[in-house]
Write a protein that binds this DNA or RNA. Structure first.
Lengths: 211, 211
DNA sequence: AGGCTAGTGACAGCCACTGACAGTTGACAA
DNA sequence: TTGTCAACTGTCAGTGGCTGTCACTAGCCT
């Protein structure tokens, strides 16, 4: 049960979020001022900063949700599963649920546009990578606990998530630059990339050139 | 042959760099204002912005040099070497030269302190990761060219550098938090981590727990 | 010696962000 | 229903990073 006050708050917050993303994606992040955002929603600038920590924060509100959902999915994997397999399955099986979570706040289409904007705006890309690093740290601890190893003395948890994170980032870039962004193609692409890590590390590539 | 004008410019630039790093590392990045930096060197604020693109830029001046040196080292590897081996050898063999390059501008000790500051300052860590991502992109293209594959259709170049970058980042963190930061210990640590990537990806870790 | 130009300082201004304080509105009890 | 409290919001003033402008100085060149 939601009180009137809470409803108003949520409306204001979501209005600010939508207006900000719309402006960011159409006219660019740096070209958009806070004043423009609050003008579109008709609140004071001060109010904006009561809902969001800063201009950057609002840009990552949706990402925040997806990352949390993914970490939860990893936590929910059966404990006997091998680490890399747990990461892989959590992503492949949880992808649909993540997309639905996004849709409940903003249209996925807007989210995709925002993703492209992040990728092409240096300041936002930097923030995105830092956030990813933080998520990887969390995941490393989850894996370490699952396997019963010490994350500070055994490098394998961090190495594993670093590799996985690398694959995800490569996928993300592919997602942003290409046309086909259906949930199914993402899943397939990620699975393919994960399979290729082994061959990327060993041997020479000339034997199977032009794949 | 350096003219008087050029000498003065270089002195001003290096003075600003040293003063900035010193202030950043002692009282913190965010706590340091541009005014304090220029006051220490006795130039106007406007002059600072003629030498450095911004407050962030000056913090990464030394890193910029080391990254360029590493990319050059990779380019210099014999072309028959396998990709991961080329990255590995370029790092292990080029590490000493990189340290010397640093020393020619600022004391390595100051550089290490700056590294720690970067790692513990969110805004700087973000910028660092973005810069690393850019370097990785360059390396991926270098590897792709060496192997004669297309970097846009074959994911292996990007996957390989992503894995390598992950190892480097884990090493960096270890470097920052621990005491022993001699050139030799870094080399050994990196080599060890690279060797463990394989076992981090496959099997379960419980068999060799507590390593 | 004198003109040219790179480099500099002083100043005004934009934008993100914050603290302080006062006004307004919803929640809840009397 | 009304009064009170707490939550929420707006206004204002101010800080710090950063940029454009313009006049001035100092090194370079003939």
């Amino acid at each position: 049960m939601e009180t009137l006050r809470e409803r108003k708050k949520r409306r204001t917050r979501e209005a600010l979020l939508r207006a900000a993303l719309e402006l960011f994606t159409t006219q660019g992040y740096e070209q958009t001022t806070i004043d423009e955002i609050v003008e579109a929603v008709d609140v004071s600038q001060r109010t904006f900063f009561r809902y969001f920590a800063g201009k950057e924060d609002v840009a990552f509100t949706v990402q925040e949700m997806t990352e949390a959902a993914f970490v939860a999915a990893v936590r929910a994997r059966p404990p006997h599963e091998a680490p890399m397999k747990a990461l892989r399955q959590a992503f492949l099986e949880g992808w649909d649920a993540i997309c639905e979570t996004v849709e409940s706040v903003v249209p996925v289409e807007l989210h995709l546009r925002m993703y492209r904007t992040i990728e092409s705006t240096p300041a936002l890309l930097a923030a995105h990578l830092r956030r990813s690093a933080a998520t990887e740290e969390t995941l490393a601890r989850v894996l370490a606990e699952r396997e019963g190893v010490d994350v500070d003395t055994d490098p394998r948890p961090r190495l594993a998530v670093a590799v996985f994170g690398g694959v995800i980032r490569v996928t993300e870039r592919h997602w942003c630059t290409n046309e086909d962004f259906g949930p199914e193609s993402i899943r397939m692409l990620t699975a393919t990339y994960l399979d290729q890590v082994g061959s990327a590390l060993t041997g020479n590539w000339r034997a199977t050139r032009g794949r």
